[in-house]
Computed example of a mutant assay.
Amino acid sequence: MFEQWLGKQLRSPRGILSKWVASYMETGNHDINEWTIQLLDIQPYDRILEIGTGGGAALSRIAEKLESGRACGIDSSKSMIKQSLRRTERLREEGKAEIKYGRAENIPFADRSFHKVFSVHTVYFWTDARQALKEIYRVLQIDGTLNLSVHLKEQIKLSKKTKDFTLYTEEQIRDLLEKNRFREINVHMYKNYCCITAVK
């Protein structure tokens, strides 16, 4: 029962405990977020999309690095949207950040809007990974990059703690990326984290 509830909360936090879930995710994801930000090789002019902003911690860090660029984020949890909007208020006023309600399978931005798209620990919760990657491909500029930071199926069994998600092997993610026309697929490892990068 608890495992099913936790799985649903991690997918889309809601209700009176959503702030606790957000804090839990932010603390647990700090290291992998920082590592992923480094891998993005952020340039001052970059337009970057985060899928699954949570409370907005990583998005805020990225927006602070930008000059003429913009950090945009989507999340499927209205509770997380509210928290990230509060956190990024100044950055949004400066035109450096934008937050929208949305899912990976239906990204609410125009074609070729971004130089870079990244996501940390959300691929498990996508209801249709092929459609999500199709959407990411659509919103990326030519030669734009995708960074997917995850725990691979071989690395950790999240299923011992939660339900309502899908674990992937490196080969499965590679196959999905290739079938969606991504190229230059590379795997980066840090501690027990994995970031799979690809180019449009």
Rank of each mutant, 00 (worst) to 15 (best):
F2P: 15
F2N: 07
E3V: 09
Q4E: 14
L6H: 02
G7T: 15
K8W: 03
K8A: 00
Q9L: 01
Q9N: 03
R11N: 05
R11A: 07
S12Y: 00
S12G: 09
R14I: 00
G15N: 14
I16C: 06
L17I: 14
S18Q: 12
S18I: 01
V21E: 09
V21Q: 11
V21P: 04
V21D: 14
A22I: 07
S23I: 05
E26P: 05
N29F: 07
D31G: 02
W35D: 07
T36V: 14
I37N: 08
L39M: 10
L40F: 08
P44M: 06
R47I: 03
I48Q: 08
E50V: 04
E50P: 11
G52E: 03
G52R: 04
G54K: 04
G56K: 00
A58S: 15
A58R: 07
L59P: 00
S60V: 05
R61I: 00
I62K: 15
I62H: 09
I62S: 05
A63E: 06
K65G: 10
L66Y: 12
E67Q: 14
E67F: 07
G69Q: 06
G69E: 07
R70S: 06
C72M: 10
C72K: 14
G73T: 04
G73Y: 09
I74Y: 07
D75Q: 04
K78M: 12
K78I: 15
S79R: 08
M80C: 14
I81D: 13
Q83D: 00
S84H: 01
S84A: 13
R87K: 10
T88V: 11
R90P: 03
R92P: 01
R92G: 10
E93I: 15
E94Q: 13
G95C: 03
K96W: 04
E98S: 14
I99C: 01
Y101K: 12
G102F: 03
G102P: 15
E105P: 15
E105M: 02
E105A: 03
N106P: 15
I107D: 04
P108S: 05
F109Q: 14
F109G: 13
D111P: 02
F114P: 03
H115F: 10
V117A: 00
V117L: 06
S119H: 13
T122C: 05
V123H: 08
D128M: 07
A129W: 13
R130E: 02
R130T: 08
Q131K: 15
Q131H: 13
A132I: 00
L133Q: 10
V139F: 04
L140G: 13
L140N: 11
Q141S: 00
I142F: 10
D143M: 05
T145A: 01
L148F: 12
S149Y: 03
E154M: 06
Q155A: 11
K157C: 12
L158Q: 05
T162S: 01
K163Q: 12
K163D: 15
D164C: 06
F165W: 00
F165R: 00
Y168M: 03
E170Q: 05
Q172C: 09
I173N: 09
I173G: 03
D175A: 13
L177C: 08
E178A: 01
K179M: 02
N180E: 15
N180T: 01
N180M: 14
R181P: 00
F182V: 02
R183N: 09
M189N: 02
N192G: 04
Y193F: 15
V199T: 03
